[in-house]
Structure formats: structure tokens, C-alpha cells
Simulated scan of single mutants.
Amino acid sequence: MRMPRALILIACVVLSACSGDGRDIRLRDMRSFSDGPDEFSILPNKALEAPADYAALPVPTPGGTNLTDRNPLGDAVAALGGKPSALIASGVPASDAALVSHASRSGVSADIRPTLVVEDEEFRRRKSRFTRIRLVRVDRYNDVYKRQSLDAHDEVDRFRRVGITTPSAPPGAR
């Protein structure tokens, strides 16, 4: 007795839905399937050198930074003529104070970050209902968040229709 191909396909899909433990709400699937190391996670330290003054060394902190640790973003900023210290978050800069006060004119929720974490996890849980049923691994992040993203060209067109000048936007839409 031969089983129809459709029945075999349905059985494979049902069995693949049962694989794994727990419910997977991750939408990004960027795992490496090779046995080797991830060459992008290895970051060699700078060369060791004796400091001019041992008393000026920072106090060691578990999990903290080290003088020989690389700082790729800071190195890039310094190479381009900027200040690497600007990357360290130290509150709102004076140049952005007017923007922050205008944006917070209707009040600011103090617990917005934990609230967004809970809401986003629930959103991903709803959108991942049928992600376990798949024959091929797929990165679904962009598909799931598509309705929450803006189309830059549509926004430029909308601003121009209202009369807002958009000098930095390209002259032709699309």
C-alpha cells in the first residue's frame, strides 16, 4: 500500500512543528551551522605596555573594561577626527536640550523601557505561532515588523504634499 505524497508532506510538517523544546519567539535566525569558531566574535587585545604611573591605573572591576581591550567604534571615531569620549553616554548634551524638552512636553513615562520590553515580547510571541512549522530556516524579522516600519519615500512625498521642505531628501521619489 502506497501513501500519497501529500500525506507524507503533512506528516513531515507536523513532526517538524513538534521539534525542539519550548516555544521559539525569536524571529531572527542568524545562527552559524558550522563546527568552527565564529571569527567575528574573536577580538584580539592590544599589545601590553608598562604604564608611566602605576598609581594612575584604574581599579579592576569584574566584567569591566581593560586598558588593553579594543574599542572598534572609539578607534573609528578617533581615526575620522572625532572624540571617542562622545560615545560614552553621559546624559543629554546641551545641543540637544531643546529637542528633548520639546519631545517631552506632554510628559514622559518613567517605565517606558520595561513596558516596551513586555509589549514587544508579547508581540513576538503572537507572531511566532507558526514559525516552528517550516521546512527551511527563514529570518522572519523584516516580515513581522513590516507594518511598523516607515517607507522613506512615502514619508518624503507626504511631507512635500503638506509643504514641508525636505532639502536632504533625493529630488525624485523612487
Score class of each variant (00 low, 15 high):
Cys18Val: 02
Gly20Arg: 07
Gly20Asp: 04
Asp24Phe: 01
Ile25Val: 05
Ile25Pro: 00
Arg26Ala: 07
Leu27Glu: 05
Asp29His: 12
Met30Cys: 06
Phe33Trp: 06
Asp35Lys: 09
Asp38Lys: 09
Asp38Thr: 07
Glu39Phe: 11
Ser41Trp: 04
Ser41Gln: 11
Ile42Gln: 10
Ile42Asp: 06
Ile42Thr: 07
Leu43Asp: 08
Pro44Val: 00
Ala47Met: 03
Ala47Trp: 02
Glu49Asn: 05
Glu49Leu: 02
Glu49Arg: 13
Ala50Val: 10
Ala50Arg: 08
Pro51Ala: 01
Pro51Cys: 00
Pro51Val: 01
Ala52Glu: 15
Asp53Thr: 02
Asp53Pro: 01
Tyr54Met: 12
Tyr54Phe: 12
Ala56Trp: 00
Leu57Ile: 03
Pro58Val: 02
Val59Thr: 13
Val59Met: 14
Pro60Ala: 03
Pro60Cys: 01
Pro62Phe: 14
Pro62Tyr: 13
Pro62Met: 06
Gly63His: 06
Gly64Ile: 03
Thr65His: 11
Asn66Leu: 05
Leu67Ser: 10
Leu67Asn: 14
Asn71Cys: 04
Asn71Arg: 06
Gly74Pro: 03
Asp75Lys: 09
Asp75Ile: 02
Asp75Met: 05
Ala76Met: 08
Ala76Gly: 06
Ala76Tyr: 14
Val77Ile: 14
Ala78Val: 03
Ala79Arg: 14
Gly81His: 04
Gly82Phe: 04
Pro84Ile: 01
Ala86Pro: 01
Ala86Gly: 08
Leu87Cys: 04
Leu87Gln: 13
Ile88Asp: 10
Ala89Gly: 10
Ala89Tyr: 09
Ala89Ser: 14
Gly91Tyr: 07
Gly91Gln: 06
Pro93Lys: 08
Pro93Thr: 11
Ala94Trp: 08
Ser95Met: 14
Asp96Trp: 15
Asp96Leu: 15
Asp96Val: 03
Leu99His: 12
Ser101Gln: 12
His102Gly: 13
Ala103Pro: 01
Ser104Arg: 15
Ser104Gly: 15
Arg105Ser: 11
Ser106Met: 09
Ser106Ile: 05
Gly107Trp: 06
Val108Cys: 03
Val108Met: 09
Val108Phe: 05
Ser109Asn: 11
Ile112Lys: 09
Ile112Arg: 13
Pro114Met: 00
Thr115Arg: 10
Leu116His: 07
Leu116Tyr: 08
Val117Trp: 04
Val117Tyr: 08
Glu119Lys: 06
Glu119Arg: 07
Asp120Ile: 04
Asp120Gly: 13
Glu121His: 15
Glu121Ala: 12
Arg124Met: 06
Arg125Leu: 04
Arg126Cys: 03
Arg126Met: 05
Ser128Asn: 02
Ser128Gln: 03
Ser128Pro: 00
Ser128Glu: 03
Ser128Tyr: 01
Arg129His: 12
Thr131Tyr: 08
Arg132Ile: 00
Leu135Lys: 04
